[in-house]
Amino acid sequence: MKTHTRWGLVLLIQVVVLGAIAALGICLGSTRVPLRAVLAAMGGHASEIDQSIILGIRIPRVALAFAVGGGLSLAGVLLQGMFRNPLVEPFTLGISGGAALGLCACVAFGVGSGLGALAFPAAGFVGAMATAVLVYGLGTRRGMLNIRDVVLVGVMVSFVCSSLVMLVMALARAEDLYGIVFWTMGSLEEPRRGLLAVALGVSVVALAAAYRLAVPLNALALGEDGAAHLGIDVERTKRLLFVLSALLTGVCVSVAGIIGFVGLVVPHVARLLVGRDHRILLVSAFLCGAGFLMLCDLVARTIVAPLELPIGVVTGIAGGTLFVYMLHRRQSPEGRL
């Protein structure tokens, strides 16, 4: 019972911190907007410039960081729990490689260019899903998803995809190259309304769906046999986890490009904060991921303003150093990681 109170408290703190980060993200930028103006804009009576900055640029951008950061981090927790391997992340399974390849095909060969501005995300999503299906198929034997095979196949598919991406880049025209490189570094800039809605919807619905799997995930910590002995339908759970995380990753990658590290590092940070019980970890990791990406995005667009750093660069540097620091500071070798 004490634990549940502690969980409630942790969530409350996280929500407050997240709110503060969101407020900062909306107020700060190339032009500063006071918080009062933000509230006014949301009520619909601010100056036209403020209105367009806040509602048209800042809020969508912060909302996208929320959806993508939360989504990637959640996918990471689900996969690490399912594989019982702390080094697995959404991109280990080759999903980002597939998205990149889909995008390359779109840029270099003009596949699906009829879709206009939606061509990039659509191509990324199709590529991501195609590799997910491929990895899932190759990792399944006699109707059972073999955890070890899936990781190995995922890593190999990743390699093949990145080689093919390099091949396409080597053959591509110079002006196409820029688009590919820029996209692979990830960006939260100017999301289209429709895409933003999809990303938000998918990550929030996925969080709710994932929560239904929190107890089975806890049981899976005992291994597949151990979970089965606790009455968990292990094959069904693995299938759902795979589909859920592939969908999350696919959507995040196709909307915001390849933003590495969130799905790998944030789940570990969340685990250090709240422990490894998935009933709190799932929500906590989602909120941590959302906050982390909002913060990274804020840094990316303010630190060398008016220029912007690619968001993937910031998450990589910040996430990597933060993680090594936390790991180093952790006292007991038996820690809860």
Binding site: L222, G223, D225, G275, D277, G335, R336
Partner: peptide, 8 residues
């Protein structure tokens, strides 16, 4: 004897 032991 094959159940995984995790730090909980």
């Amino acid at each position: 004897q094959t159940a995984d032991i995790v730090p909980m």
